[in-house]
């Protein structure tokens, strides 16, 4: 975490990712990965009305005194908190930083009650018989299921992730069953949201990958180059990225798409595009949920970041369309 800036959790919506990258460069702000480390909840871009509850959950997880700021978006109905920041990036950064100290503390929107009441019966209060089973706090205990990696059958944990997970494309919601850090199965609930033109430049696509690979300084150089002129060939930057050896740090054959490319080859393609000053070629991910099964959590994040958001959106048929297709 950088020193000095106001810690901000960015809840990004649609059509905004490029602008968020510009905002990240402002020294007054420090974007953080979880709301627990943040003082300000910054809601940016077009929001789905259905994500209101998710936003309220994030809002409740901020440390007190919490503040909400809306930037380049309107307040969601039923979420009457916070103030609107000015449109321009530098004004917005100053405004957000000021809100952290000046605004009154906001109360949480959700009820202060256990999400599911305690139902402790059984020898260990777990709500079932023996050590296993039962529903303490109304949620079922994790039960064993077959392991994909080495045959040890251990407990599987199912949870819904997204839409504001910072490592994933904004708007993506997946119900994921994990065993330790291995993804057993994934079901896509909502596709990622469409983003602005700047977010689809090879610069920013590489920057997202490099941040996952813990090379934030290079990512920042790419973002600066993209903001200066996204269509100019950046041969030196492409070389700088390649010389870090980052391509060989990615496992070979990870996340094979329909054309036989993997994460490494897709990243190499982005580097070529960056050096030539043209957009990267689109990839065909195929069945994204099936591709993630059996991968470790960090590998899955890399696979998701290795596709452009448009590729993912094309590959993921929205649930409404899927239902209509099933009905027909």
């Amino acid at each position: 975490m950088a020193v000095g800036g106001t810690p901000v959790f960015v809840a990004a919506g649609g059509g905004i990712l490029g602008a968020v990258e510009a905002l990240r460069l402002e020294p007054a702000l420090t974007p953080v990965a979880t709301p627990r480390a943040a003082q300000v909840l910054l809601v940016v871009g077009e929001q789905r009305p259905s994500d209101r509850i998710a936003l309220a959950r994030i809002h409740a997880q901020l440390v007190e005194p919490r503040a909400t700021v809306w930037w380049r978006t309107d307040r969601l109905s039923g979420f009457d908190l916070g103030t609107r920041a000015p449109e321009s990036v530098s004004d917005a950064a100053a405004f957000i930083s000021a809100q952290a100290t000046q605004s009154d503390a906001e109360a949480i929107l959700l009820d202060d009650a256990p999400p599911n009441p305690w139902e402790g019966i059984g020898p260990h209060g777990q709500g079932g018989k023996g050590m296993m089973g039962g529903t303490p706090y109304g949620r079922p205990m994790a039960m064993t299921s077959d392991d994909l990696r080495d045959g040890l059958s251990l407990d599987a944990y199912t949870a819904t992730f997204g839409p504001y997970l910072t490592q994933w494309p904004p708007g993506l919601i997946m119900e994921t069953t994990l065993q330790g850090d291995v993804i057993q199965s994934a079901r896509i609930v909502e596709a990622p949201l469409a983003q602005d033109v700047l977010a689809a430049t090879p610069h920013l696509e590489l920057a997202r990958l490099l941040r996952l690979l813990e090379l934030p300084a290079l990512a920042e150089r790419l973002v600066r180059a993209a903001l200066a002129n996204p269509s100019r060939a950046a041969t030196g930057l492409a070389r700088a990225v390649r010389w870090t050896g980052v391509l060989s740090a990615i496992p070979a054959g990870l996340g094979r798409d329909e054309r036989g490319g993997d994460v490494r080859s897709r990243m190499a393609g982005r580097l070529h595009a960056l050096a030539a000053g043209r957009p990267a070629e689109p990839a065909a991910p195929g069945d994204v949920a099936a591709m993630l099964a059996g991968l470790e959590w960090h590998e899955a994040a890399l696979v998701l970041a290795s596709f452009s958001i448009d590729d993912l959106r094309r590959a993921i048929v929205s649930p409404a369309v899927r239902m209509a297709k099933d009905a027909a």
């Binding site: 949480i108 777990q126 205990m141």
Partner: peptide
Amino acid sequence: WPQRLPFLGGGEADTHAWQRY
């Protein structure tokens, strides 16, 4: 209570966190 939930990017856990791995 809502602050005590694990951070899942806005999502919620379906199963209890008591588990063996």
